[in-house]
């Protein structure tokens, strides 16, 4: 529980607070379905996924003879959980050097997430981790990463601001290889997914690492801001196209945002969510598990935190 619960307690309260209010009603009628639909949408679950969940629930209600709306709770929980799956382990073992490329729009929390991830891999998994400061565009992005690097004692390979990110990636990959590091995490500048040239640059950066290490990058993690609405899906699609996103980190879920995008990401795009960012401190990156995520949305009995 611990931090996951603490971070998600706001999500749980506001989401389930309303769900239970709704499900406390008596008979299931048209209003129940309308309300459920809007509640899911309000949790940023997205229109298509919402319609699918509600349709599936309606079928279940008919098949199982559910008549009272409070019985819907378990059914809803099951339907939501069915949309998620346990993310596979990151593909960062079994080779000399594994490369993780981190991408996303501006301000989604890439740099912070990278620091947290590096810290996790180094301390929890005992791996030798290096970071490449590939964001050469944003003012002081390099310094931000270097500050984190010092705090968590992970080397950061950087070049001058404004220099070619591809060159930094090349240098860092060579350095990691030469110095026997097992994992290289590459930071990239934030970019909006509808900026064609910047997306093309990302493709190039991704290819550069592959020139030094076969099949690299081995993981491409998209960092999504948890407070983002339906545009999250567009982001995931475009970044997937440009850089072959293999998984997602959802940040800022310690807010009152509902994190409903997680369902769409899994269900519509078949992308696993690996981690959730739940705060500003270095330990606030937790592994995603579907049961826990859904439970945390629903478990109103758990008041221990």
């Amino acid at each position: 529980m611990g931090i996951f619960r603490r971070g998600l307690s706001k999500t749980r309260q506001s989401f389930f607070g309303r769900i239970s209010q709704l499900l406390g009603n008596t008979e299931i009628d048209d209003d129940t379905w309308d309300d459920m639909e809007t509640l899911l949408i309000q949790a940023d679950v997205g229109f298509n996924t919402t319609v699918q969940v509600v349709d599936a629930l309606q079928a279940r209600v008919r098949a199982e003879g559910i008549t009272r709306s409070d019985q819907l709770r378990d059914a809803l929980k099951a339907e939501l959980a069915a949309l998620l799956s346990f993310p596979p382990a990151l593909d960062i073992s079994g080779r000399e050097l594994s490369i993780i490329l981190v991408v996303g729009v501006n301000g989604s929390g890439k740099t912070t997430s990278i620091a947290k991830l590096a810290h996790r891999l180094k301390n929890l998994s005992g791996r030798k981790v290096m970071i490449a400061a590939g964001d050469t565009f944003r003012a002081a992005a390099i310094e931000q990463l270097q500050t984190w690097g010092e705090r968590i004692d992970v080397p950061v390979i950087a070049n001058r601001p404004g220099s070619d990110p591809g060159a930094v990636v090349y240098d860092a990959t060579m350095a990691a290889k030469a110095r026997g590091y097992e994992i290289l995490i590459i930071d990239t500048a934030g970019r909006l997914q509808n900026n064609y040239n910047l997306m093309r640059e990302l493709t190039k950066i991704s290819e550069v690492s592959g020139k030094v290490v076969p099949d690299a990058p081995h993981e491409v993690l998209l960092v999504l801001d948890g407070t983002t609405g339906q545009n999250a899906i567009e982001q995931a699609k475009s970044f997937q196209e440009a850089s072959g996103v293999s998984g997602v980190i959802v940040t800022k879920l310690d807010s009152t945002a509902k994190g409903g995008m997680v369902f769409s990401i899994f269900h519509d795009l078949h992308l696993p969510v690996h981690y959730l960012g739940l705060g500003e401190t270095i330990d606030d990156l937790v592994l995603f598990t579907p049961e826990f995520f859904v439970d945390s949305l629903f478990d109103d009995d758990d008041q221990e935190n």
Binding site: D225, T227, G229, K258, M261
Partner: peptide
């Protein structure tokens, strides 16, 4: 952020 979802109201 113009991309903010339903959370906009709370923020």
């Amino acid at each position: 952020d113009a991309m903010t979802g339903q959370e906009a109201v709370n923020i």
